[in-house]
């Protein structure tokens, strides 16, 4: 997966749904348009949830995938 320079990093490791998405929303809401959030989770359910949530809200999922760190997502605020 492609790495991006993140403006903010959010650690959601060890959390189960709905918390990773709730925390991601909160972080994104506080950011400026165009800024990039890196979110790391361990819940495999986050894959389809983050994909669906970004599609719904219009924030851009730049890349996402499984790494040694966990499931990593780069999200650009719309």
């Amino acid at each position: 997966m492609t790495d991006y320079t993140a403006d903010q990093v959010l650690d959601c490791k060890g959390l189960n749904c709905p918390l990773p998405v709730i925390k991601t929303k909160k972080a994104i809401d506080a950011m400026d348009s165009g800024q990039i959030l890196k979110m790391v989770a361990t819940d495999p359910g986050s894959k389809n949830d983050i994909t669906a949530w970004t599609a719904r809200t219009g924030h851009e999922l730049l890349s996402g995938g499984e790494t040694d760190e966990g499931y990593v997502y780069f999200i650009k605020k719309k």
Binding site: G45, N48, D49, A52, R56
Partner: peptide, 28 residues
């Protein structure tokens, strides 16, 4: 989310009144 719901849902011998509204819709 719709993808997970579409792949596998609760089924039974009779029709079930089912609605799929993802939790992040309630959040948004």
């Amino acid at each position: 989310n719709e993808a997970d719901f579409g792949r596998f849902k609760v089924e039974g011998p009779h029709e079930i009144d089912t609605s799929n509204i993802p939790y992040f819709d309630f959040m948004e």
